[in-house]
């Protein structure tokens, strides 16, 4: 279900995304046309949610750190209207999981940054176990999405932006099945994390290896 505000911001922010980056998108056909799904992505920049959500035709409820909602009145008004789910990072947050599961029950998409935060160094970090558990509990198709180039455009350690080429790649949906019990989820945790990591790395492709300069 697409709300009016969400539809409005998707169009408006897509144009802002085009101003901020030179964005290429591939694999959009992998996003299910209907029914619930989970979209998992790497997270290198504050630009990621803007580019992923505006290039996805379905409504995606993305987890966002709760402190962003409290940053100022504008964010507090804006974030719920773009379907952001506040997630407290300093404790296990069952309410954010409930909100996500409700969105899936309604047939919407839910977006998860598996690393739980923006990468400092632009490389894929370890995945949060709670995110994998949610995927295993939900049992819906999981669409991997890799965004490259946003780290060069705007990494987390600077306020300055650079307009660079960004590539958003959606991959084929993965199916993990429903794991009803905690025991089943725990035993499937590591294999699922490995599969998701491989899917994201495959979308990322080879990154050129840069030898450390020696001055020779």
């Amino acid at each position: 279900m697409v709300s009016g505000w969400y539809a409005f911001f998707r169009v408006a922010l897509r144009w802002i995304g085009r101003v901020l980056t030179r964005c290429r998108v591939s694999g959009r056909s992998h996003i299910p046309r209907e029914g619930p799904f989970i979209l998992v992505a790497n997270h290198e920049s504050i630009l990621d949610p803007l580019l992923i959500q505006t290039n996805c035709r379905r409504t995606v409820h993305f987890f966002a750190k709760s402190t962003q909602f409290g940053a100022n009145a504008v964010f507090r008004w804006f974030l719920p209207r773009v379907a952001a789910i506040p997630a407290r990072r300093y404790r296990v947050d069952p309410q954010s999981v409930r909100t996500a599961l409700r969105a899936l029950e309604r047939g919407d998409g839910v977006g998860i940054y598996l690393e739980g935060e923006r990468s400092w160094e632009g490389a894929l970090r370890p995945f949060r176990r709670g995110s994998i558990r949610l995927i295993l509990k939900a049992g819906v198709p999981v669409v991997p999405c890799h965004v490259s180039g946003t780290y060069d455009a705007w990494p987390r350690w600077t306020r300055s932006r650079w307009r660079s080429t960004v590539h958003v790649r959606y991959g084929e949906p993965l199916h993990f099945g429903v794991h009803e019990t905690r025991g089943a989820r725990e035993s499937a945790l590591e294999p699922a994390a490995d599969r998701l990591r491989q899917a994201l790395l495959a979308l990322a492709g080879e990154r050129p290896d840069r030898p450390w300069p020696t001055g020779a």
């Binding site: 709760s66 402190t67 909602f69 409290g70 507090r76 719920p80 209207r81 789910i85 506040p86 997630a87 407290r88 300093y90 947050d93 309410q95 954010s96 909100t99």
Partner: peptide, 17 residues
Amino acid sequence: EQAVRYRGVLRGFVESM
């Protein structure tokens, strides 16, 4: 902690520092 609601539905909680 403050509740975040949208259209009357609770979406989550936010800490106030």
